[in-house]
């Protein structure tokens, strides 16, 4: 079997700082939409940090959870696409072929994780902000659905380099932008088909679970639950 890319996110390390959110914008040429469009729910964040409040003052608890495309093995977004723009790559990613997309938005409706974003307008950058654009990533035009790719451009670059050097991609060699930036090392990316990869080993943690797994989506992101302090641990 080829690579099966996956991710582990340790919620006990995540502090909700959102370095991942901005890193993703910078890496993937995600356009800002401005206040009016954002007010209408059209802001695009391929990764977001959800926060959950529990309890009333003063017994308040807050939990953070970064949510991005879960790269499901049984992805609800894929079979609904009439043009096969949403498809499953042989490395297990939920791919999106922008040139095939005709903007039915069926995939966004089908996705239970709310991680697909539609371009209601052509993206625009006030000059010279366009110079910040990453030449490795295509800019999506109006009428096209876009989503997290696990930084496919970085995966491909590493695979090409490894192939040129006649070796396999090393564990940890590929870091999507969110993983690279994360100040607490809460995110780990790796090959789930390799049982020895750091991601595979961490995914087996007893703290691990998957987001809305009961829907049968078979996500490839494992969340390690936040722990509570147990003073005896240190004894």
């Amino acid at each position: 079997m080829g690579h099966q890319w996956g991710m582990v996110i340790d919620l006990d390390r995540c502090t909700g700082c959102e370095a991942c959110v901005v890193a993703c914008h910078a890496e993937n040429n995600i356009a800002t939409v401005g206040d009016k469009q954002a007010a209408g729910g059209r802001a695009k964040h391929w990764i977001r940090v959800e926060r959950y409040y529990e309890g009333d003052f003063p017994d308040v608890k807050v939990k953070f959870m970064p949510v991005l495309c879960q790269q499901c093995d049984a992805a609800p977004c894929e079979p609904v696409c009439p043009t096969f723009a949403s498809y499953h790559t042989d490395e297990g990613l939920n791919g999106q072929i922008y040139n095939r997309c005709i903007g039915t938005r069926y995939c966004a409706n089908a996705c239970p994780y709310n991680v697909r974003f539609f371009n209601f307008y052509n993206p625009a950058w006030d000059k010279p902000l366009d110079l910040q654009l990453n030449p490795d990533v295509s800019v999506r035009e109006v009428g096209v659905m876009e989503k997290c790719t696990f930084c496919l451009q970085r995966i491909k670059a590493a695979e090409i380099e490894a192939a040129a050097e006649k070796r396999d991609v090393k564990d940890g060699e590929i870091q999507p932008a969110c993983v690279q930036s994360c100040p607490t090392n809460a995110m780990v990316f790796g090959d789930l088909s390799d049982p020895h990869s750091r991601a595979s080993r961490m995914a087996a943690s007893s703290r691990g679970n998957k987001l809305m797994e009961e829907l049968g989506t078979r996500p490839k992101i494992t969340y390690l639950q936040r722990e509570s302090w147990n003073g005896d641990e240190n004894a």
Partner: peptide, 23 residues
Amino acid sequence: PWMQEAPDPMSTAMWGTWVELNP
């Protein structure tokens, strides 16, 4: 613009300001 449109971690607010108060 990236900072204006990045959601505030505690509230997810963007492009503006607010005042917080207890229910």
